[in-house]
Nucleic acid binder design. Structure first.
Lengths: 215, 215
DNA sequence: ACATGTGAACTGCTTCACAGCG
DNA sequence: CGCTGTGAAGCAGTTCACATGT
């Protein structure tokens, strides 16, 4: 299989979301042009993205909505559900726990861990908050993804323990650059960074260039 | 001035954070190599990024930490503080309101707006929640940045009103691709998308390629 | 006729390598 | 000598344009 740009994966997620939307409206078929318009990209980009994984369309017709939706779900690994652990039950952690959009695609937060003794034992969204000391034991139960919503200063240490416990994918919300070994997937969401990007644009707004969506 | 890649701006934010860290430790001078090591990039990349904005270093020595820190702060527009309005006081909105990392760099949330009559009038972090109906009136007070933490279905309508009210920068947390006119800066943080990126890596983990940090 | 799939051209970002200066 | 600043080279992702299949 050819090399797949990371940006392609992000777009595939967007395509899938749109396909599921129009499927609910009863649309059977969609052209690359129409899909591109809704996704905010170009027809050529859509076709190139898909061509990296196979051929899904009918010439002269377009793409079958249910077929392409299923294909994308398979490519993205969304046919199965992934076991997710949330580390950090502070304000951000609790917001993520309540974020319904995760559950939609098969990401189920099945455990919550926090270091604060005052929080341990509390029930959040039906889950008992477990102590950080038991992290290794808990992750021994076979988690796929860890969401880190801990303070910046604690993030690297927690990440190290999570990785040592065998978790191979992390979504980090702490504003630090985590070091992880080869073979561990890491995405970081850094909101302060996004704001500073906006600040840059505003400060240089005399040049009047709009910034296109990136996130 | 030369054209600046968007990715450069993100890295400048990272450099600034690191410089402020080592400044607190009393470090006076840093080489591009050392800065790169901490930022997770290369020395050449650091020098190229900075060279787009001027010459800041001393050959044979490196960069003066306080000088470079000040220069970056100026480039990023962080010398002044920006007036931020939060639209949406749901779980995510409240988490963002408590997120201390925003305040650090001069982003002050000065108003909170929600459509839910049950929330309007409540005090959150010392701010009274204001009704969505008064959005235009409130933004008339001259806000720079709007943070959108509203449901996906409401996001585009809110964005339209925010733009019409004259706000030229938005940070969107709803999982939709917003359409904004030229001249309005938009960043979207889509956490479900990040998780799907991790899912892709996990599902294709036989290929064993680690994904490097992108956010 | 129409829309896909794809090599080729292009654009833009990153890396290289070295001249230049402290 | 060490480290910066920068053209040039290299690489990756996007766009173009058209041959191909229905």
């Amino acid at each position: 299989m050819k090399k797949v740009p990371g940006s392609t994966i992000g777009r595939l997620s967007v395509y899938l979301r749109l396909l599921d939307e129009v499927k609910a409206e009863g649309v059977r078929t969609l052209s690359s042009g129409e899909l591109a318009r809704r996704a905010g990209t170009t027809a050529a980009q859509v076709r190139k993205d898909l061509s990296l994984f196979g051929t899904f369309g009918k010439r002269g017709v377009g793409y079958s909505v249910p077929q392409l939706s299923a294909a994308l779900r398979s490519i993205l690994g969304l046919e199965r559900s992934w076991r997710v652990v949330l580390v950090g039950a502070g304000q951000m952690g609790r917001a993520l726990l309540g974020y319904q959009d995760f559950r939609r695609q098969g990401f189920t937060i099945e455990a919550v861990i926090d270091s604060d003794p005052a929080k341990v034992g509390q029930r959040l969204q039906g889950l008992e908050v477990l102590p950080l000391g038991r992290l290794e034991e808990i992750l021994g139960a076979g988690f796929d993804i860890a969401i880190l919503a801990v303070p910046a200063g604690a993030a690297q240490a927690v990440a190290d323990r999570v990785v040592r416990a065998g978790v191979r994918a992390m979504l980090n919300f702490a504003p630090v650059k985590l070091q992880v070994p080869e073979g561990v997937a890491l995405k970081t969401v850094n909101m302060a960074l996004e704001l500073e990007g906006l600040s840059y644009v505003l400060a240089n707004a005399t040049a009047q260039r709009a910034v296109r969506q990136e996130g």
